[in-house]
Design a protein around this nucleic acid. Sequence first.
DNA 1: TTTTGAGTTGTTCGA
DNA 2: GTCGAACAACTCAAA
Length: 480
Amino acid sequence: MNIALLWFRRDLRLTDNPALNRALQSAECVVPLFIQSPEEEMGWAMGSASRWWLHHSLNALDASLRKLGSRLVIRQGESASVLRQIVRETGAKQIFWNRLYEPAAIERDKAIKQSLRDDGLLVESFNSALLKEPWEVKRGKGEPYKVFTPYWKALQSQSLEYSILPAPTKVPPVPLETNSLDLDSLGLLPTIAWDGGMNAFWQPGEEGALSRLDEFIDASIGEYATDRDRPDHAGTSCLAPHLHFGEIGPQQIVLEIRNRLELSSKQTGSDSYIRELGWREFAHHLLFHFPYTIESPMDTRFQHFPWNEPDVNKLKAWQQGKTGIPLVDAGMRELWHTGWMHNRVRMVVASFLVKNLRIHWLEGARWFWDTLVDADLANNTLGWQWVAGCGADAAPYFRIFNPVLQGERFDPEGDYVRQWVPELSKMPARFIHQPWLAPAAILQSSGVSLGKNYPLPIVDLKTSREQALEAFKQLGARGC
DNA sequence: TTTTGAGTTGTTCGA
DNA sequence: GTCGAACAACTCAAA
């Protein structure tokens, strides 16, 4: 019998899965496989929020496979040796997977592909994760882009005629003797139950991804261009973690939006949403061509930037949402509670860390990496370097967010702050973004005692801004 | 090779 | 309260 291995990684779906499609076409029997490999294999070890997500997503994938007559085989160990082991056990002659783009993953997968081919196996990989792969969009001389707008124009000028591969209606059964580890034995779930907020908020897996998209197109995409900036509204897609784990692909999203919104009034919103998918593409493009950016600034002038000596107390206050700046604290607590943070607030908290506290962007990147359910090396790297001003197409040095103004503009009633910072829930809107200016009587009637049940700001916004401007300005006069 | 135009998301200050 | 300018100069991309 002709047997194929389907190596699932971050393509945890059955619809529009090119590797799965290929396996079903070319083999009579398919073994769907997930390998939990040692952390070193991927460079950055997966954070706890992502592990939580992965557990539930694998569970959902296994359930879907079982409905079609198959099941997910789970193994643990170094990827190369596990694959070899399964090849020996099953006698498989073919292996298929969908590609990843992190530097460490590329290196690993290349080596595995080569060595399996040397053994005479048929090995093929596919694109399931991007509109265009990082090398498909290039400038005249084949060089990569470093500025978003021309990159996005170039990508869009290429053919974007997608055809979606339907989910199979049947998958042949896995041989009985092929055993699998119990999902629980991977230890992906937290040992202390901190995941209540996550369970309430998310439905990992393909079904959850599709219903999230459906709801987003239905309810929010029309107003996306403006509502996406409002943390007090549910105006964003919340698709990032689903995209990260490949429970849905960007091509599916674009096609679904196009099909549903033809000739509708929601054009502006959907264009602006698809442009955000463009940023995701751009992040992967940059990571592929400039892999060192995962820990080094793209702009070499920043190698000698005077970051403050790590102040453990201030970093902790930021992480725990106890900076005394309401919008920052609300964002950091939302992150801790749900594994997610609204995009605009991400920029605000990042700017606060990097510019007001002047703590190295990598500290922020690592925290996000560990706490976000949508932690993604490409997006995380781009985002942090953008805010720090040291990346491709980065924010100009003088762009320093004022968390009070941002709060008043994008959370005008203070609802978002009230939701995540209950100590301030009785503060009137007028002072909720800067309680330190509230008269004593108002503080008292709101039950707020600054420095006691809600902190005073750990840094003065005005002077720290001026100091940051000064420090960043030093970089202006060319290479250090 | 040279030139030209453009470049996600902001804030403050002074008129 | 609103509005435009200043905050820098540089690099990127394409003609």
